[in-house]
């Protein structure tokens, strides 16, 4: 898919682990892993909002469009 999830980079910048983020936003680690690996088909606004709130960032920091 041409939408890339840069969650790993943002997490590394903030010295956070996936487990911590999953706990903060209230989703399972498995679902966060699906999101990070780019296997997710869609993301809910509520999840995006929770991630942005937890990481203090903008949606554009997490999601990017890359031409195939």
């Amino acid at each position: 898919m041409s939408i890339v999830v840069n969650l790993n980079t943002v997490l590394a910048e903030r010295n956070l682990k996936s487990k911590d983020l999953a706990e903060m936003i209230g989703i399972t680690e498995a679902n966060l892993s699906i999101l990070k690996s780019g296997k997710a088909k869609a993301i809910r606004f509520s999840t995006l909002e929770a991630i942005c709130k937890a990481l203090d960032c903008q949606p554009a920091d997490i999601l990017a469009y890359e031409k195939e």
């Binding site: 997710a40 088909k41 993301i43 999840t47």
Partner: peptide, 8 residues
Amino acid sequence: KQENDLTI
């Protein structure tokens, strides 16, 4: 269902 399951 697959699409729904993969909506995070």
